[in-house]
């Protein structure tokens, strides 16, 4: 729950007050909410850190890669989190 997972913005999705976007999380495309990033200029290809389905901060590619390799080292905790992300369906 407290893990921040990096994702890369693939597409802004229409509807729902423009709060939804498609991101690539470890090779899988997931819907997330970007409503907390209204003050930040986001573009396709940008990286964000995601907490419980919400983008919380924009980071550069290097930080995203480092955050991911850090998570991969966490083993089971990260596997569990990815499993939870896979079962999540945000609308």
């Amino acid at each position: 729950m407290c893990l921040a997972i990096p994702g890369q913005l693939v597409e802004f999705l229409p509807g729902n007050a423009d709060q939804l976007a498609l991101v690539d999380v470890v090779g899988v495309k997931r819907k997330i909410n970007i409503g907390l990033m209204d003050d930040v200029k986001l573009e396709i290809g940008d990286y964000v850190l995601i907490h419980v389905g919400f983008a919380m901060s924009k980071v550069d590619e290097k930080e995203a890669a480092e955050a991911l390799s850090m998570l991969e080292l966490m083993g089971q905790a990260f596997t569990d989190e990815l499993q939870a992300v896979a079962e999540s369906s945000i609308e």
């Binding site: 729950m1 909410n33 419980v52 389905g53 919380m56 079962e87 999540s88 369906s89 945000i90 609308e91």
Partner: peptide, 28 residues
């Protein structure tokens, strides 16, 4: 995974009451 999943469950189950047990610091 997300409180938005809880909201989706509520949307999908109009005959049930869905409660989200919210925990966490300012992060969540």
């Amino acid at each position: 995974y997300s409180p938005l999943d809880a909201l989706r469950i509520a949307r999908d189950n109009p005959d049930r009451e869905v409660v989200f047990y919210a925990i966490g610091f300012e992060t969540t």
